[in-house]
Write a protein that binds this DNA or RNA. Structure first.
Length: 560
RNA sequence: GGGGUCGUAGGGUAGCUUGGAUAUCCUGUCAGGUUCCGGACCUGACAACCUGGGUUCAAAUCCCAGCGACUCCGCCA
């Protein structure tokens, strides 16, 4: 409803400004009004008058319609022109929520690529951030009305995978373990062997060559390993409520000749520097480092294959988003330039900084890493302790289910509450401290709302609409409704700017306002008419809290 | 050496693209609060824009310089 209000303010203000020579309206949100305009400042310098006198004058020209409007009034406060909503706005905002908020379908399809971890072992904490950001973006764009497809790009042609495939011939992939964990064991052991014997390195190279050329027996061996890893990775992602619509394999582009086609095109269109052998180095404007698209020995590189993948992706959608780690930043720039050269639309990159541990850097080989599975289990266990302490009355299954929602919620919220470019030091104790950390607080508010509605079973009906205007007059009630009315606006803004933390912030603020309302406005003990109105407000809050948590990929428990 | 990101209370963090009212929120410390629907709650207080210039009526925001931090720089992925 806020979007409609904003549109109306724009319309009214534009007419009032008709006789001025102004560009834009300089609308801002502030605590002083529902919407403000700072236009008087810029007009002041243009007309050599005081901002205050101009603001006073503009307000006189503002004509608010007598009916069918959401604006109550516009007043000049010094140089600012402040607009306020009316009761109709508050009424309609709740009405909209009761009908169920659904965004209008938007034109265009969006593809988001995220996670894309190498299938040589389990996900670790860095992948987790990638996956959670990517999934969050997908959810928010869907909510904003777009068609979204999520893709996991499987790097099945790298050396790491070859090492695992090689190792799998010599040792068993343990079946007792979760598949991705079993695969990394093989990788670590095989890698040690390969490092010690040069002869093995040749075998690895032969294996890579055979796979690239599509040798059937080799392809089968690869598939076994890659599928084992992916099944484990998928299981981990599932615990986090994350799924991908499509898994795309790097090798497909090589065998179809799409990669060769890219090379040919770049040779024709680009500034190529040849060096010894078959090597091709591409110089890209504005980037010092040349992009190697083919090795001396004639084999191709990851980035070249990535170009083929992006060309394919780009042709299948209208907006392309990649979630990349910071270490890929240079690659992302080279990718952009090279794609431009090819006349292919480049993706929008969401670059996120790494998650490190207080003990130092993460190292897979040294065994000094935290697998995502381990982390998830620990945080769920911690949440369980808390649930068991508070809700001894519940059945075991119930407690487990709540702990799962709370634990995953805390983790997901933690990963998106700050801007992606901020580096995170992952302190176990803090992450496991589920109190005051965002998601549990919001979930608790949701559970409380549910609790009230349960207690009011039979009292809550839909026919209090007419009473609304006279019933809900408390500040905490109005603030809460205004916040509810902004949900769609926040979703649209966050979708446009790809800023998940805006949604996280909104969720927290909404929960805060509900708690304040809860504190000052008794619902069940209010006299009948007021009770009905407040029950509706509780219902609407519950709905939006559930929606906003869903956008963040967090489940809302009705008890906790 | 070159590129990038960043510097906001004791710690963390929003705001910076598009300059404008008392700089956001979490945590911390201190002081309060529940005859009531769930105390994983609420209210109040303390405390910050790296430094120096510049532009401007107005700078956390834009420009320049400095200092500091982190990070990337393989014919790996």
């Amino acid at each position: 409803m806020f979007i409609e209000f904003r549109n109306e303010v724009e319309h009214v203000l534009e007419e009032a400004l008709a006789s001025y020579d102004s560009e834009g309206m300089e609308l801002t949100e502030s605590e002083h009004a529902d919407i403000s305009s700072r236009i008087a400042f810029s007009l002041a310098s243009k007309y050599k008058r005081s901002p205050k006198s101009i603001a006073d004058e503009i307000v006189k020209y503002i004509k608010i319609p007598a009916e069918d409007t959401l604006i109550s009034n516009a007043v000049a406060d010094g140089p600012y022109i402040n607009f306020f909503v009316n009761d109709v706005y508050l009424h309609k905002a709740l009405q909209r929520i009761k009908e169920g908020i659904t965004a209008k379908k938007k034109e265009g399809k969006i593809i988001i690529e995220h996670t894309s971890a190498n299938p040589d072992g389990p996900l670790h904490i860095g992948h987790l951030r990638n996956a959670i950001i990517g999934d969050g973006l997908a959810r928010i764009l869907k909510r904003a009305g777009y068609e979204v497809e999520t893709q996991y790009y499987v790097n099945d042609m790298g050396r790491q995978i070859a090492v695992v495939v090689w190792g799998a011939e010599r040792m068993e992939i343990a079946t007792a373990k979760k598949a991705d964990h079993a695969v990394v064991d093989v990788y670590i052991a095989a890698n040690r062997m390969v490092e010690e014997h040069e002869a093995y390195q040749r075998e690895i190279e032969d294996l890579m060559g055979a796979y690239e050329s599509g040798d059937e027996a080799v392809v089968k061996r690869y598939e076994t390993v890659v599928n084992a890893s992916l099944s484990g990775i998928k299981a981990t992602l599932e615990r986090l409520n994350i799924h991908h619509d499509l898994f795309v394999f790097e090798s497909e582009f090589v065998r179809e000749g799409a990669v060769e086609a890219v090379v040919e095109e770049l040779v024709q269109k680009g500034n190529i520097k040849r060096r010894d052998g078959a090597a091709l180095l591409l110089h890209l404007d504005g980037i010092d480092k040349e992009l190697v698209i083919r090795r001396t020995d004639g084999t191709l590189l990851y980035t070249t294959r990535d170009l083929a993948y992006h060309r394919w992706k780009s042709s299948r959608c209208d907006r392309l988003i990649d979630v990349f780690g910071k270490d890929h930043e240079l690659v992302s720039k080279q990718l952009t330039k090279a794609l431009e050269l090819m006349g292919v639309r480049a993706p929008e990159f969401v670059i996120f900084a790494f998650v490190s541990l207080p003990t130092g850097s993460v190292s897979t080989r040294a065994g000094r890493y935290i697998s995502a599975d381990e982390l998830i289990s620990k945080i769920e266990a911690r949440a369980y302790e808390e649930v068991a302490k508070r809700r001894a009355d519940l059945e075991e299954d119930r407690k487990r289910a709540i702990a799962r929602k709370v634990g995953i919620g805390a983790l997901r919220y933690d990963m998106v509450k700050v801007s992606p470019e901020k580096h995170i030091v992952f302190v176990f104790e803090d992450a496991l401290d589920i109190e005051k950390k965002g998601a549990p607080f919001i979930q608790y508010s949701y559970a409380r709302a549910c609790s009230i509605l349960r207690a009011a079973e039979g009292l809550f009906t839909d026919d209090y609409d007419d009473e609304y205007n006279t019933a809900l007059r408390e500040e905490s009630e109005k603030d809460l409704i205004k916040k509810l009315a902004k949900f769609e606006y926040v979703v649209q803004t966050a979708a446009l700017e790809l800023k998940l933390h805006l949604v996280a912030k909104y969720a927290r603020e909404l929960a805060e306002m509900f708690n304040a309302f809860y504190k000052y406005c008794p619902v069940l003990n209010a006299e009948q008419e007021l009770r009905g109105a407040r029950l509706q407000l509780v219902y609407c809050t519950k709905t939006v809290l559930g929606d906003v948590l869903d956008v963040l990929g967090i489940e809302a428990p009705d008890v906790m």
